[in-house]
């Protein structure tokens, strides 16, 4: 599997689920923190990619 994007999504899912489970006790709290972390990782990477798009090197 060589898709960088797919790896990023899988990685973000594993890490965000881990931290949400560790730091929140309720399902609602876990979902909220996990969602925030997942969006921060995946969304942040996509935003950064677009910002860097004009500067390929």
């Amino acid at each position: 599997m060589r898709s960088h994007f797919l790896h990023m999504v899988i990685y973000a899912t594993i890490v965000s689920t881990f931290f949400a489970t560790m730091f929140r006790d309720t399902p609602k709290g876990r979902l909220r923190l996990g969602g925030i972390l997942w969006l921060a990782m995946v969304g942040g990477a996509l935003v950064l990619a677009y910002v860097m798009y004009p500067f390929p090197r």
Partner: peptide
């Protein structure tokens, strides 16, 4: 439940 979920996440990451 928390332990099983942690185990799943860590073993999945290790296997990947």
């Amino acid at each position: 439940q928390r332990g099983l979920l942690f185990a799943l996440l860590i073993w999945a990451s290790f296997a990947l």
